[in-house]
Structure formats: structure tokens, C-alpha cells
Simulated assay, not measured.
Amino acid sequence: MPLSEEELRLLEQMERALVEEDPKFASTLRGTTLRSSARRRAIVAAVCFVLGVVVLMVGAIFELYPVAIGGFVVMLASATVAVTSLRSRRQAEQQPGTPTSQGFTVHQGGRAGRKSRQRSSEGFLDRMEARWRRRRENGGF
């Protein structure tokens, strides 16, 4: 449920008062955005991937197979980190409730989130029970 004009105005006033009273605490609450931290992780992972390629090639050239395997493991781990950070970055761009550099945001929670989860799990349980009944009626597995 979206906030009314008055509630938005009150939140902005509270934010301004917090920034005036304790600017260091306010900057701590703002933190970094999910996009920038995901971008930073992806860049670090790319650099580690390149270093892994170098270690793999050095190990292969000098026939130091444990070193080459270590380079491959570094490449694999950095590729995994890069893919997960890029996925989280896309999700952060799609979600409207992510922190921005302009101020604080309101995250939806409470009963609204739980109701949707319960409905989906009830549907799942109903389908499983119907499958079980059909199997029993048809003479087993």
C-alpha cells in the first residue's frame, strides 16, 4: 500500500531532522547502493579471473600442475562471484525499494508479504495432495 502525501512529507521531515542532528549516522544509514556494491564485486571478480588465467598459463607452461589447477579454481570462483553479483545487480535495478543516494527508502513488509507466501504454498500443497490421491486411486506408484 503506497504512502499518502502527508506520510511522505513527515518522512522527509524526519530525514532532514536526522541529517541535521547527526550527519554521520545518516550517512551510515544510507550506505552504498546495491548496484554500486554489485558493480564493485563484478570488477574485482573480473580482475581475479584474469589473474587466474595468468596463474593457469604459468602452471601449464612450466608443467606445475598444482599451480595450474589453483589458477583454474581461482577462475571458477571469480566467475561464480561475477555471475551472482550481476544477477543481484539486475534484481536491484528491478526492485523499486532499493536504497538510493538521494535518501532513505521504505521497504514493504509485515503481513502483506506473508500472505502471498502462504497462498503460493497452499496452492503447492493442494497440488501435491491431489497428486497423492490420484496415485492412490490408480493403484500405487
Rank of each mutant, 00 (worst) to 15 (best):
E137M: 02
S88D: 14
L11P: 01
R134D: 05
R89N: 07
V55P: 00
R40F: 14
R134W: 03
V73T: 11
V73R: 06
Y65D: 06
T100E: 08
D126G: 07
L3C: 04
M57Y: 10
A26I: 01
G103H: 08
S85F: 08
D22M: 06
S121M: 11
A92M: 05
A92I: 01
T84W: 14
P99L: 13
E20S: 12
R134T: 03
P66Q: 02
A60M: 09
P99N: 15
F49D: 06
V44R: 11
R117L: 03
E93L: 14
T105Y: 10
S27M: 14
S27D: 15
R136L: 06
L76Y: 09
R35P: 00
P99Q: 12
F62D: 07
M14T: 01
G123R: 14
Q95I: 08
E7R: 08
T32F: 14
G70N: 08
M14F: 06
G123P: 00
P96L: 11
V50A: 11
R131G: 07
A46S: 13
F72S: 04
L18F: 12
S4C: 04
T28V: 13
S36A: 13
S36N: 08
G110T: 01
G110R: 05
G140Y: 05
Q108Y: 05
S88A: 15
V67N: 00
A26F: 14
R127W: 07
L3S: 07
V44C: 07
F104W: 04
G103M: 02
T98K: 09
E93Q: 09
S116N: 03
E15I: 03
E5F: 08
F25I: 00
P66V: 04
L10P: 00
S120E: 11
R134E: 11
E129C: 02
A38V: 03
L76T: 08
I61M: 09
L8P: 00
R111N: 05
V50G: 02
V73Q: 04
T84Q: 15
R9M: 03
R40L: 12
F104C: 00
L8M: 09
V55S: 00
M128E: 10
Q95D: 15
R117F: 02
M75C: 15
R87V: 12
D22H: 07
G59D: 01
V58N: 02
A42Q: 09
V53E: 08
S121P: 00
E15M: 06
Q95V: 06
F141L: 12
Q91A: 14
Q108K: 06
R111L: 13
R90Q: 13
L86F: 10
R114G: 04
R9S: 10
V53N: 03
V19R: 15
S36H: 09
K115L: 07
P96A: 09
A60S: 12
S36K: 12
